[in-house]
Design a protein around this nucleic acid. Structure first.
Lengths: 198, 198
DNA sequence: GTAATATACGGACCGTTGGTCCGATTGTTC
DNA sequence: GAACAATCGGACCAACGGTCCGTATATTAC
């Protein structure tokens, strides 16, 4: 059902232009001060085009984040260890957190915009879900006695855009990475539970 | 400078009506579908009244949360232990988390609305700040070798409205409380750092 | 009770925005 | 180069946050 004829050349061109414009504007003025009108104008297309491509504001931001997260996603499922499969979870988890921290640091604006665009329940956003599944799986392997689902949320909560900004503003990217390692370590080395918390 | 003549009777009445209406509407339809027009109409006042009282949407939501958090705030600074002063931090922290979990569970809608209303940097919102200072102080006393500021954010991040909803939807209020205890315990009993992480 | 004053009220009004719609345009295919 | 489908673009709409100011009302002083 997804095997339509290929995307038209102008459509492709426009999609890139729109994403680029959106990212630049969001980085410059923040999500709340970027209207679709502006995005369209900056990208040199009509407003209708933006909506036809992405459905709505939320869709646009989702696409933006997905674009930025694609390489990481691929590295996780089929890249070399320790990020990709093949290494023990105790190594894959920190590697993933490192990669995500780097991604987050370099794209705080996109992250922030995505958060604010998600109407509600950001936890069920595709990208979040993918990350959460990954972390949960790793945690479950390394520490089957813990509530992996909950601790997955805990770790991912550290990538809240405001938090990333606050931490890196006072300590730079290094502090974020260090804090994440510290937290992950604390969780992985927590005293054993007699039975799964959940 | 804050010793003006007392609030007029009608003003007081209206403020309560507005807060009540706002809470009911937010609980019923969610922040994104509640316009100030509706709040005003439901409260039986004019639109201008709402804005004069609360400044803007954000101010209204802030006031709503502050209203709901007031008793907790008082209990912390001057109530009986273990919530109030007098108990060791290892007891005050879980007590605070319990209280906050209860508050959050009973007022998820308000919490969610407040989050979404905060234009940006929810970390510098008065209520968040107060809670963070409290947690940070307790953590700092119990475990001076940790990055209390960071772990304070970690713990508070668990009160994200979406997360609270997700956790309690599958496990109820009890699961949230248990998870929080577990996390706090994990942090408090983490292997000692040779020197403060920060 | 009444006059004087400060305060609060309310809804008409404005500019902006997300989103829709359809006639005009353009890429693609044969 | 003709025919067709897909895409484009901007006029248009409804809804919203926020402002403004003439009117109403609580309070105070006498």
């Amino acid at each position: 059902m997804s095997e339509q004829r290929p995307e038209r050349a102008d459509a492709l061109r426009n999609r890139h232009a729109i994403l680029e414009a959106a990212e630049a504007l969001v980085a410059a003025h923040g999500f709340d001060h970027v209207s679709i009108d502006k995005v369209a104008a900056t990208a040199g297309v009509g407003k209708g085009t933006v909506f036809r491509r992405f459905g709505n504001r939320t869709g646009l931001m989702r696409a933006l984040l997905e674009e930025r997260a694609r390489m990481l996603s691929e590295a996780i499922v089929s890249g070399p260890p320790p990020l990709g499969p093949g290494a023990p979870p105790e190594q894959r988890l920190p590697a993933f957190l490192d990669a995500l921290a780097s991604l987050a640091t370099r794209n705080v604006s996109v992250l922030a915009a995505h958060e604010r665009a998600c109407p509600q329940d950001k936890l069920s956003d595709p990208t979040y879900l993918r990350w959460h599944r990954h972390i949960t799986a790793l945690l479950g392997q390394a520490r089957p006695d813990l509530d992996a689902e909950f601790y997955g949320h805990t770790l991912l909560a550290m990538f809240d855009a405001d938090l990333v900004r606050s931490i890196t503003a006072n300590g730079g990217a290094a502090r974020l990475a260090a804090s994440l390692h510290d937290l992950a370590d604390t969780i992985l080395r927590a005293p054993a539970r007699s039975r799964p918390v959940r």
